[in-house]
């Protein structure tokens, strides 16, 4: 998985039916210190994350697993809201 910060949302009315009721989040990949680390992208929300929250997300084939048995097309899904990142010095 990877770390990210939710920076926005995306709405789409005309879309594949299995996405009905799902929230799309705009996510900025970040490093452990919270600095930006890559291009923003769109992920499906599986955990109820809100704007500004630090999250972690799963990518690839496994991104559709949180919605099983529903078959939801996704290559990036937010699966956790980060309370904190403990970094050993």
């Amino acid at each position: 998985m990877r770390l990210g910060r939710v920076t926005g949302r995306l709405w789409s009315t005309i879309k594949t039916p299995e996405h009905d009721g799902k929230r799309f989040l705009v996510v900025q990949p970040i490093d452990a210190a919270g600095g930006d680390a890559g291009e923003e992208f769109v992920a499906v929300d599986a955990i109820g994350a809100g704007a500004g929250e630090t999250v972690y997300w799963v990518r690839g084939r496994e991104a559709c697993i949180p919605f099983y048995p529903e078959q939801v097309a996704s290559d990036a899904t937010v699966v956790g809201i980060v309370d904190r990142v403990n970094q050993a010095e």
């Binding site: 452990a32 109820g48 309370d83 904190r84």
Partner: peptide
Amino acid sequence: VTGEVVATHKSSSHEGLKLLV
């Protein structure tokens, strides 16, 4: 391993697993 992620609100299948940075 440089650290660990603490997340109480997460996918149920991650319960009890350590999330290493």
